[in-house]
Each structure stands twice: as C-alpha cells, then as structure tokens.
C-alpha cells in the first residue's frame, strides 16, 4: 500500500487530496493535479468575490434571461432546489447581505467587493427562474448569488469523479473539513473522520467511519463576522441573523454537494426542524448544541460507527 498526498489553497481553504494505491505510480500525482484543476475551475466560475466570474456576470444582469455554462446552470439550479426543499431557510440570493456582514474580501487579491447594484430591492430564491431548454437563468430582481455552500461540495464531487476515472478507488478529499472518503485508508479500514468539539477546537467530540460517502460540517465557530459581534457566516435569511443554540451541524450523504448544502440548510433550520428534514430526506445528520449536547438522526451512531 502506498499513498500520496498533496495540499493546495482553493476556495479560501486548504484542500488536501490523498490517494491510496497498490502500486507506486506517477499516475497518482497526475490524478491529484487534475482533481485540483477542477477545484480551480469551479472556484473561478462560481466565486462571488471575483467581479469577472461567470456568476457575478450573471448577477449583474437582472431582468433578462442569460445563457450560462452547464457548470453554472447546474450549481445555481441545485442551490435553488435546496432553497425550495427548505422553504427558503437556505437561500442563494443572500450574497449582498453576506457582503454587508463583512464577508466581502477576495482572499486571493485582498480586494473588497461591494455590489451596490443589488441594493435596490429585496430578493429571494423565488426571484430566480430557469429555462432548461436554452440553459438560461433569469434574475427577476437584482441580487448577488451566493454559491459558497454549493461550489465546494460540487468541486469535491467532481474531483472524486476525476480521480475514480483515473482508476483509483481509495482516496480522500478534504476541503477545509468538507470531506469525501472513497474506499479505504492505507490500513485498509474505512476512513476515520473526527468531528470537532465546537468548544475546544483542538479536540474531537466524536468520530465516524466513512467509505464512499461525504461529510460536511457547518460550524458557528468557523467564520465569525468581523462587522457584527456574535454573528457568523451562517445566516438565517428569514430573521437576518445567525441561528442560536446550535454550534455545529454535520451531514453525511452520498454526494459532497448534498452534504455541503444541507449541513448549511439544516444548521439554519435549527435542531428540531433540521433533524426532521434530514430524516425526511434520508440523510444522516449530527448536531452539536452550544451546551455540547449531541443530537442526531435515527441510527446515525450505529450506522457510522460513532465513537466519542
């Protein structure tokens, strides 16, 4: 058993890709580089911090149907479907609110974005409409689309597909705690994934064993607002504030994009509603409350070999 690992910076986080293989081969490096290329491509297309990204070009063209790339179409479509599923608890139209809450800096250039064009009206996900046939998206009101809870998961899934297509079945992709684990680790065991203790961040509150599944965690400790004390990057669009009581929410799903979007969505929905929604969708979820109680969907602990 050999493994090779690479780290790179993308989407304002460190991405680590590790491939385990029977043979030592240059193909591992090539596969990781290709996977990284997909991360960069998706970042470039879906970033709201880059005025030239395809996403921002679309955002600036409210009022008319815009033809977009398949990648962007699918990402926005997925975000809006998630919004519909959660009655707007998750809402991709909140980009401008996020800017105002201090999440406005391009981590690569250091430049701040200020999309005042979106200040005229209050928009929601219902102001986005899709023309499937012509692959066009219409913004009925000006808005900044925020795909930060979709793009990373999507990049992980596409990277995983690229690595699989190179013939590897045992690997792990970790993008700042959003993880897809395929096959087994170098000790031929399912990958062990720790879930951070929100109060003592160097410690785990528990761990799970994953194989061919993704886990993504939304934590209130991860990105505090520099503008609003006590607020963080998780915004409840209905109340225009960060949810209380819940410290972190992890979702396990067959796809990272599902785990990513729904860890954010169920965090915002809160403990009871969020867990209920996850049960309903047959996704697995564990939430840590601010008082460090562990709450999870039925059978979560047995299913994923929870170890605390």
């Amino acid at each position: 058993m050999f493994f090779n690992e690479k780290k790179f910076i993308c989407m304002d986080t460190t991405v680590t890709i590790k491939i385990v293989s029977q043979q030592k081969t240059n193909k591992i490096d090539q596969a990781i580089d290709e996977a990284a290329g997909f991360f960069y491509k998706i970042e470039r297309t879906c970033s709201r911090f880059d005025p030239d990204s395809e996403l921002m070009q679309l955002s600036r063209h409210a009022g008319k149907s815009v033809s977009v790339s398949p990648l962007l179409y699918q990402a926005v479509k997925f975000a809006v479907e998630t919004a519909r599923e959660t009655g707007g608890a998750f809402d991709p139209s909140i980009g401008r609110s996020m800017e105002r809450r201090g999440f406005d800096k391009n981590y690569l250039s250091g430049e701040k974005v200020r999309s005042t064009f979106a200040d005229t009206e209050r928009a929601t996900y219902e102001d986005l409409s899709f023309d499937e046939e012509n692959r066009e998206i219409l913004l009925k009101k000006p808005m900044v689309i925020d795909l930060s809870a979709v793009a990373k998961g999507m990049a992980i899934d596409v990277a995983a597909k690229a690595i699989r297509d190179e013939g590897f079945v045992n690997f792990i992709i970790n993008a700042g705690g959003d993880i897809y684990a395929a096959g087994h680790n170098v000790r031929e065991k399912p990958w062990k994934i720790g879930i951070r203790n929100p109060a003592r961040r160097s410690e785990w509150i528990g761990s799970v064993r994953l194989s061919n599944a993704a886990i993504c965690t939304s934590g209130d400790y991860e990105r505090p607002s520099k503008v609003l004390p006590g607020e963080n990057h998780l915004l409840d669009p209905h109340r225009n504030q960060s949810p209380e009581n819940i410290a972190s929410c992890s979702v396990i799903a067959p796809f990272a994009m599902l785990a990513d979007a729904f860890s954010t969505a169920s965090f915002i929905m809160g403990i009871d509603k969020g867990l209920k929604k996850m049960e309903e969708m047959n996704l697995d979820c564990v939430m840590i409350t601010r008082s460090l109680d562990v709450r999870s969907t039925n059978k979560f602990k047995e299913k994923w070999s929870w170890n605390d």
Binding site: F38, K41, I42, P70, L71, Y73, Q74, A75, K77, F78, E81, M154, D157, V158, K161, P254, F255, M257, L258
Partner: peptide
C-alpha cells in the same frame, strides 16, 4: 440533480 451537476461540471 447531483449526478447531472457532477457529470456536466
């Protein structure tokens, strides 16, 4: 939805 997004991307 996921399969289509991943495939097209």
């Amino acid at each position: 939805l996921c399969t289509a997004a991943i495939g097209l991307a």
